[in-house]
Design a protein around this nucleic acid. Structure first.
Lengths: 205, 205
DNA sequence: ATCATTCTTGACTGATTGGTCAACTCTGGT
DNA sequence: ACCAGAGTTGACCAATCAGTCAAGAATGAT
């Protein structure tokens, strides 16, 4: 039961791998890589620790598998920005996609945040190559829009970073928001409208 | 060498406590509470592990001491918002104070971020009481400004959260920004101007 | 110079960590 | 019903963890 082999997965393999990754996501996203333990993940998954290590080579392999799945879906919303689209609509749609990801996959967002806080040791390659290239490409698109006077003249890099910060914030700092706003509050309430207003006014010519 | 006693600190005590807290900040802010080890902190501080425990009761006492120092300075910039000041200037000054804190104390920001990501178990009390009360107070001030038509009509809660997200972002995700923007870049370059533009346009009536 | 106090640490402990292994049970094709 | 391979786990291991302790070294007031 090693890494990627050509053998087709059995029904049991599919079920247990999913159980493990689901449990690991819960634990890693809350405690980070070093703070998480295999015993905790095993307990959360309802499996024995040796059984975990039957499906994954070691602790890092589980973590790597989670990050791999995550990074794919992380690029998609940014990649979907259409250079030939209506500039303001494209950017606002990107904001909307990102905040929906924070709402639907908050633990994935926190897993990512934990990794960055630790200096991104395990995804440095991804960030320096794929993410960097994609950001450079889309920043050029946005710069073009600004120079053509179709949106306000803002620094594209800061714009992209601010979109990340504002959207992921709702997932990463959800605990704080709930505590500050009270027990019966949903941090996402009004978030989409607020961010649409914010970026609309920022980009208006 | 226990907790808070009335005894005055000696020269050696002051020096070593500072060494320990400095080292602990470095380690805790990168790995979180559970991911950090006393051996690591001891090595970073250049002291032996038993010596660490001569100055602090246990691992948690070191962490608590760091957070305690932090939370004091965390409230100050928000508290400084003057209800009788010029609304837009007050809010922009707050943004400026926050981003300067991110620039000057990035590790403190990451320590805080780590704590929130883990569900804020050790500062839940602080958030639910002091921070919550202060946020409610300042949100009321901002709401008053909006209703008086002195700034645009935005949700004060979302406004405050977005200021936190955008400013702390430069410290918490600094590693990612450096990797995306290249080796010779300073993430803070242009950040202050960008945020001033962003919030100016958001709040303009 | 004396000496009580403060400071320091090597050697330790029991608990927990990631990971192994041999023996076991279950599954599905025949 | 059989059985080869897939799946499972109790018992274990070495390493690391937070924390203890007794004994020694440095300090500073007299």
């Amino acid at each position: 039961m090693n890494t990627a082999s050509a053998a087709p997965l059995t029904r049991i393999q599919r079920r247990n791998r999913k159980l493990i990754l689901e449990a690991a996501l819960e634990v890693f996203s809350q405690h980070g890589f070093r703070g998480a333990t295999l015993d905790q993940i095993a307990a959360e998954a309802g499996l024995s620790k040796p059984n975990l290590l039957y499906y994954f080579d070691n602790k890092e392999a589980i973590h790597r598998s989670l990050l791999g799945d995550l990074l794919d879906s992380w690029l998609a919303p940014l990649r979907a920005i259409d250079p030939d689209g209506e500039p303001r609509a494209e950017i606002l749609a990107y904001v909307r996609r990102k905040i929906q990801m924070s709402r639907d996959f908050p633990r994935e967002s926190r897993l990512f945040a934990n990794e960055i806080l630790q200096g991104a040791p395990r995804i440095e390659g991804f960030i320096r190559t794929e993410l960097r290239a994609l950001v450079a490409e889309k920043a050029a698109v946005i710069r073009g829009w600004a120079q053509a006077g179709r949106i306000a003249d803002v620094d594209p890099m800061h714009l992209i970073f601010s979109i990340w910060a504002l959207t992921q914030n709702y997932a990463d700092f959800e605990a704080q928001m709930r505590m500050v706003r009270g027990p019966h509050s949903d941090p996402f309430d009004g978030a989409e409208d607020y961010l649409e207003t914010l970026f609309s006014r920022l980009l208006a010519v």
